[in-house]
Design a protein around this nucleic acid. Sequence first.
DNA 1: CGAATTGTTGATCCGGGTCAAGCTGCGTGG
DNA 2: CCACGCAGCTTGACCCGGATCAACAATTCG
Lengths: 261, 261
Amino acid sequence: MTITSTHTKQYVLPATVQGRLYPCESCPLRSLPAFREAEPDELEFLNRFKKGELLAQKGSAVLVEGSRTPHLYTLLSGWGFRFKLLEDGRRQILNYLMPGDLIGLQGSIEGEMQHSIEMLSDSILCVFDRSRLLELYRKHPGLGYDITWLASREERMLDENLLSVGRRSAMERAAYLIAFIHERARCTGLGSGRRLIIPVTQQHVADTLGLSLVHTNKTLRKLSRLGMIEWQEGGCRVINLKELMVIAGWEGLGTGRRPLV
Amino acid sequence: MTITSTHTKQYVLPATVQGRLYPCESCPLRSLPAFREAEPDELEFLNRFKKGELLAQKGSAVLVEGSRTPHLYTLLSGWGFRFKLLEDGRRQILNYLMPGDLIGLQGSIEGEMQHSIEMLSDSILCVFDRSRLLELYRKHPGLGYDITWLASREERMLDENLLSVGRRSAMERAAYLIAFIHERARCTGLGSGRRLIIPVTQQHVADTLGLSLVHTNKTLRKLSRLGMIEWQEGGCRVINLKELMVIAGWEGLGTGRRPLV
DNA sequence: CGAATTGTTGATCCGGGTCAAGCTGCGTGG
DNA sequence: CCACGCAGCTTGACCCGGATCAACAATTCG
């Protein structure tokens, strides 16, 4: 057995449900080119479906493995990640969360959460009631379809990740991960180009890649020296995306808009 | 870069669509305890939704990465697996397919397939038309919800897999994988207890675990010598499930029925 | 000021990869 | 009938990518 990282953190819980600053009709995300437009009646339904907003601090736990929650969320602003722990504290980060991502369906629609979620920055989440999900499917089948679409997209990302962790070398993995996150963020309209900083520590990268912290550091330094990335206060910046993609043997994200629920 | 397995197989395509041997009303799967019952009107709809049956031989490719298909499938009988390849032939198996699994939604609802599917045994698949999916959501929201439920379940399995490949040792990984497949198969009513043989080669196991064939063999031999599994013509048999679960640190599948579409 | 975090680097070790060979059983063709 | 090739399993010898251990630097925060 190889223990490369042990996590036994005590979590802060996010702030309680607040009033709403962003009615769905004027959702700042929906106007971005990455997202599909919605029918007016769907939008109106969503606005009633939305129960409120949750402010979650950097480092807080929005969901905890093994617990139950009556809520679903859409990340409105901020960054987070999904992860699982083994009993001895080994952590595997499963995927990162960016604005527009639906949170809480992965793993199970009903029942206990099978993974945890922690925020990487102060964030705002739209809160929905799980119990009203069937109502959504009944009244707005198109939205139901969209939710399946999003679940399918999450699966694609997991597939790529699993391929990476299972079959790519350390350099390839690191290059893939950083290029991937960078592209996702760019599509979501976060920071344009060079100004974008991915707000992770090297420990996060290590726990995503299935590598030790030390080896992750050495790999990232190599990428730095090759002029592909820069590590700085607060995270990682991509300098040469194309070269990263070449190393990873990765073609990039498909184009096309995605639904927003 | 570490090349542990190279796959450049030429694929046989499955037989063309046949007439139907199994109308949905008398589906042999639905009566199994693992599956939820369906409303009569849903069942009737599904029966019209079902376009026919596909017979796929052992070793044939039902879906190929990068291609498009107008179909969705439910595996009616037989075994299969989903996988991705890197350009140089390294293969990662993402998950296994057993009766009742919905095939073709993982990765993308529309557009090009992001993964391939190969059958491990002669199989029968129910064929559906992708283009009628939205109709399903409109006419039978409950079935739409079920599809999301199934997508969510697939994600849970991928999460566990990723945790395993990223953070478990070779022994733990192997023990987890075998226990996991065994349990899934048992729930699906495939072979009761000792008589169940998981129809994979050690190369499949290696490509699932992200290990080399040689090391996989050595690890499986250890499990054999410990009396936990037996390897024989055609696959693997579990002898001591509990002990495998202990090694893997795995609690087992949750109970509860799942929908069948 | 000390105590956490986070990044960085070198030395050493080991789990698992690579190479090579041999075994069994099976299907095919001469 | 045997010879051959092929697919799959097995083992030993050796090597290397990445893990572990151990320091240390630079910040930040109480």
